[in-house]
Design a protein around this nucleic acid. Structure first.
Length: 463
RNA sequence: GGCGACGUAGCCAAGUUGGUAAGGCGCGGGUCUGCAAAACCCUGAUCACGGGUUCGAGUCCCGUCGUCGCCUCCA
């Protein structure tokens, strides 16, 4: 039985989709005005893992992740750079998609964008509907959501309007009826991207587009709505307010939020400036490293992003990969009862951990135990045939987590020459010419080839 | 100031309905080896602090201290 932590109730709840066997999930994607950083990667990875696990559990998952491709920041950035805002957004969208692919994140079922005609049509329909019902009003070409009209406003973030009023910085001379009201449509200035409406030309507010895309792609009520926990308020609160006021139905059943990535003890963010872009990270590390970092923690908790945690993730990956190595040269067979028992119990333990609100750290712990037993079995002489069932399970479970665990490969014919060199080297070794033997090993290491010697012969692999 | 989350070995961390603490990284020792590496084995915490409930609490309650997030754009 899968249980998920629901931000709205602050408890783990049994997962029960609206429609048997099907899951509709929506995750808030980035506003594309700059390079994405590893904090974005964390969020994308978390929900990729959730999605993969749901699929592993047999659900047919429809997964929507949007791109916010029109907003103030995009417009400002484009004007700074002297480029067209649509071109700017398009460039970052393509880069983001490539990053997701490099991180082995499954493509979303659909990637709606705010500026698409179908989205814009939905947005306008929503705003008009909200105005009709008295939940929204227009002023000077803007449209605002009337927060006080929504009785249960604040139910997700656990705030109430009175408390917020007390500490709120109320802008002087604001044209809004109330400081808490938020824009669902913004009047466009000269030269800004704009769409025509009965109350003037302009662009959608940030919150309304997500509501509209979610409604259009997945329907009035969805199963899971996700995003970073920095979106809980006001973004998701406002999404709920608009959507439920418009449809009169419950918007999302389960709200899932990932914790923030921490760099030097603080949330990684553009405004603080303490960020590492996904592009930079992937220059030095394979995608699995970032995923490993995420898997080793709890998705709801802050994640430490440090040199030490990164290298721990890298070494942990090596360890997982070690489980896939073939039997030793003179494997003669070994006792496998314990290994097979462990293989079966690992799958159960994995599922149990993941069922408990996607406890990846716990699941990973069980996988590591299986790896150790596989390696121990190999050391005592298990053959490839004997190792295979356990290795297959290892592959299956790590795949559910989205880990690729690829061995590096040489290019073209290099392997042939390396084998030749190692043949010569083994001849050198029988003559006990250790200095020459070690020289070859060192030089190969410098080229990325790790040579390991044992009494049964030498083996090598790309590192 | 308000709301929320968290505080487990050097680091990252797991811990079902309370019954004497997974796993990974690192450190140290060992087996193997000409050496190295890999793999395997051994080695470490009474769970921020102070109270309380209980036969028994990391696991429930209260308080204190600390860290982080949100309250403005933000994955």
């Amino acid at each position: 039985m899968l249980r998920l932590y629901n931000t709205q109730t602050r408890t783990k709840e049994e997962f029960q989709p609206l429609e048997e066997g099907k899951v509709r999930m929506y995750v808030c994607g980035p506003t594309v005005y700059d390079n994405a950083h590893v904090g974005h990667a964390m969020s994308a990875l978390v929900f990729d893992i959730v999605r993969r696990y749901l699929q592993y559990r047999g659900y047919d998952v429809k997964f929507a992740m949007n791109f916010t491709d029109v907003d103030d920041k995009i417009i400002n950035r484009a004007s700074e750079k002297g480029v067209d805002p649509f071109d700017l957004a398009e460039g970052y969208i393509q880069a983001y998609k490539e990053h997701l692919d490099d991180l082995n994140i499954l493509p979303a079922t659909v990637n709606p964008r705010a500026t698409e005609p179908k989205t814009m049509k939905q947005i306008l329909a929503m705003i008009e509907g909200l105005i009709e019902k008295g939940y929204a009003y227009t002023v000077n070409g803007d449209a605002y959501f009337r927060v006080h009209k929504d009785d249960d406003y604040g139910k997700l973030s656990g705030r109430n309007l009175d408390e917020m009023q007390a500490g709120a910085r109320i802008a002087v001379g604001d044209i809004k009826e109330n400081a808490s009201d938020f824009a669902i449509w913004k009047n466009a200035k000269e030269g800004e991207p704009a769409w025509e409406t009965p109350w003037g030309s302009g662009r959608p507010g940030w919150h309304i587009e997500c509501s509209a895309m979610c409604l259009h792609e997945l329907g009035e009520s969805i199963d899971i709505h996700g995003g970073g926990n920095d979106l809980i308020f006001p973004h998701h609160e406002n999404e709920i307010a608009q959507s439920e006021s418009f449809t009169g139905k419950s918007f999302a059943r389960y709200w899932m939020h990932n914790g923030m990535l921490q760099l030097s003890g603080e949330k990684m963010s553009k405004s603080i400036g303490n960020l590492v872009t996904i592009e930079d990270f992937l220059k030095d590390h394979e995608g699995d490293v970032m995923r490993m970092l995420v898997l080793n923690g709890n998705y709801r908790s802050p994640l430490a992003f440090t040199d030490e945690s990164i290298s721990a993730a890298e070494n942990g990956l090596k360890r997982l990969k070690s489980g896939f190595r073939p039997a030793t040269a003179k494997a003669a067979g070994a006792e496998t009862e314990a290994l097979y028992a462990k293989t079966a119990s690992t799958r159960d333990a994995f599922t149990e951990a993941m069922d408990d609100d996607i406890n990846t750290a716990g699941a990973l712990g069980h996988i590591f135990e299986l790896v150790r037993l596989i390696n121990a079995s190999r050391d005592t002489g298990a053959t490839d045939e004997q190792l295979r069932p356990a290795q297959n399970t290892l592959r299956e479970l790590t795949s559910v987590l989205g880990l690729e665990l690829k061995e590096k490969e040489g290019s073209g014919d290099t392997d042939k020459f390396i084998n030749l060199l190692l043949e010569v080297r083994s001849e050198v070794r029988t003559q006990k010419l250790w200095a020459l033997s070690d020289l070859i090993r060192d030089k190969l290491a410098a080229l990325g080839v790790t040579v390991e010697d044992s009494k049964d012969g030498s083996s090598w692999r790309w590192e």
